[in-house]
Amino acid sequence: MKSFLGQRAIASAISLVALIVLVFFLSRLTGDPTTLYLPVDASLESREQFRKLHGLNDPLIVQFGRYVGDLIRLDFGESIRRSEPALDAVLRAFVWTLQLAVITMALVTAAAIVLGSLAAFKVGGLFDRIATFFSLIGASAPDFWIAIVAIVIFSVNLGWVPTSGTGSVWHWILPISVLFIRPFGLILQIVRGSMITALSSAYVKTARAKGVRNRPIIFVHALRNAMLPVITVIGDQAAALLNGAVVVETVFGFPGVGKLMIDSILQRDFTVVLAAIFVTAVAIFLMNILIDILYAVLDPRIRY
């Protein structure tokens, strides 16, 4: 296990380095940074001054060396628009996103597992049909549309919850609800399919012949076996949320990393974009390692 974790850490580090290199050169490919940072009518002198200030006249390789050196010290530079270190801004936003992602995924996982398992127990029954119907709608509904409609109905017309921002528990309800829908629909389908396979397996037949009650058959015998493919999808969906639920955060004015990234791109605040990419990438690598550990915990046949 230890050597496995070591290997995974090394593999993740290599991916991270590749990502960092890619981000640097891609951002240089988008053209002269001065045309991006400075107003269109900026004078040649101010452009030259800007270049000198940020070392843009140096050879690319020197710039890259400086960039890597800064990264190693976790120094992403100052945010041009916010006048604070870029990393601070990103970490502050990331805490919001992390809370949003963890709460949403916890609710999604619990609901999808319970309802998906019950749907699989009587395939084609009324409960199964209702669950399948709604999960399909959920899995295919566009979240920006749901977000706007939800604001119109629950905030504007009914006035039950605030339209945007943070501050109270009430502010969390709409973003979480909207983010909940799609992964819930998707994961419920995966749980259902995986549980149908597990419930028709030979060991479930043994359990029935032993006189085990239905509830432990579903939630003890079948579920743990059915969880491996489910965890893969949960990880996938959680990664999407950690990356910042860009649309939903923007619609609800939620100060998460997704909104920060969009704002920074629009404002040409590249140090912040870079820091955000770095932080979310590290978070996703860590989560993938966590998922690999979970596999081994759930299935004793998996040993690294």
Partner: peptide, 13 residues
Amino acid sequence: IFQDPLSHLNPVY
């Protein structure tokens, strides 16, 4: 008891 004991025992317990 059944024919194939490997598949009739739950692999994760």
